[in-house]
């Protein structure tokens, strides 16, 4: 460093400092204002969330009782329940997730860990993204053609689950792949350098870190499955046969809670006096199911990450962390 440079760095440029300080005062105000803006946005979010929960529960809770949750619905007499609808909803949820999760996560692992980066992989990624934004009713039409007409599965829980699995596959792949790609390369290299095979590396060094993201993908997908109507109307139907109300047979027709609400509120059931109340009750139950699943998943993810990473929060013993 020559003496000039040294001279410059050793001294404060007073005019420059003054300019910065003036600008800093403004920046401080902007900083505060932005804190306010973000807080307001968060506040708005909280209000909307609690508003939704409050209004749905206020309308629906009066309808909910043990009988309501366990008896069959009626389209003729008041006092019908939603037991079979809850059953079908859970059945389709589990079946769709069971189909979409292994394929979705598998494809995500392939794209991030195996596929050579390049135009082909990018094209696949791009198509997946495009597919994720196709309206669900289009998948419904597709499912009706493939599963009902070609494969002859009829209006059934299976047709619906397959359709919803396909519908959610792109989203699942996108989120899972992002989660996997966000795992630092250093983890892979550390495992490979210890002699880990590609699969062992993925299983023990990559997936544990990606797991919270993958579970997020599952929860989002699950939420969409529970709330979907159009594709199910086209592939599973809107009725539950009275003699197969809690059937495990995937070839039965079915009606999920969301579809039930749609039938009661939109299609209308002339002559059923408590249709609105049953619909509101169903909406409340749907909301509660989603909340319970989310809280459960959050708890599970938390426990899991703590187990995998070593319990966090508690201060570590001195010397355990190389500084």
């Amino acid at each position: 460093m020559n003496s000039d440079t040294r001279e410059i760095l050793a001294t404060k440029d007073v005019a420059w400092e003054r300019r910065i300080m003036a600008a800093r005062r403004r920046a401080t105000l902007i900083d505060r204002a932005m804190t306010g803006v973000m807080s307001l946005a968060a506040l708005f979010l909280v209000i909307v969330l609690s508003g939704v929960i409050f209004i749905i529960l206020r309308a629906g809770l009066p309808a909910i009782s043990w009988t309501f949750l366990t008896t069959a619905s009626s389209i003729t007499d008041p006092g019908g329940g939603i037991g079979p609808q809850i059953w079908v909803t859970m059945y389709i949820l589990v079946l769709s997730l069971a189909i979409v999760t292994p394929i979705g996560v598998g494809a995500a692992i392939y794209l991030s860990e195996y596929a050579r980066p390049g135009p082909i992989t990018n094209a696949i990624r791009f198509s997946t993204e495009a597919l994720a934004s196709v309206p669900s009713v289009v998948f419904g039409v597709f499912g009706a053609i493939v599963f009902l007409t070609i494969m002859n599965l009829g209006f059934s829980v299976l047709s619906g689950s397959l359709t919803l699995a396909l519908l959610n596959l792109p989203l699942m792949v996108r989120i899972a792949e992002d989660a996997i790609r966000a795992v630092p390369t250093a983890y892979r290299e550390a495992s490979l350098a210890l002699g880990g095979s590609r699969w062992e590396t993925i299983r023990k060094a990559v997936l544990p870190s990606a797991l919270p993201g993958i579970i997020t993908a599952l929860v989002l997908t699950g939420g969409r499955i529970i709330g979907e109507t159009a594709p199910l109307i086209l592939t599973t139907g809107t009725t539950i046969s009275p003699n197969a109300q809690y059937s495990l047979n995937p070839l039965q027709t079915g009606e999920t809670l969301a579809v039930h609400i749609w039938v009661l509120k939109i299609v209308g059931v002339p002559g059923l006096q408590d249709a609105q109340l049953v619909a509101d009750g169903s909406a409340a139950v749907l909301l509660l199911i989603v909340l319970i699943i989310n809280v459960g998943m959050a708890y599970f993810t938390n426990r899991l990450t703590q187990r995998l990473r070593g319990a966090s929060g508690a201060p570590r013993a001195g010397g355990s962390k190389k500084g």
């Binding site: 410059i8 050793a10 001294t11 404060k12 440029d13 007073v14 005019a15 420059w16």
Partner: peptide, 9 residues
């Protein structure tokens, strides 16, 4: 560059 003061503190 303007009038200057030493900086280290």
């Amino acid at each position: 560059m303007d009038a200057s003061t030493p900086s280290a503190t």
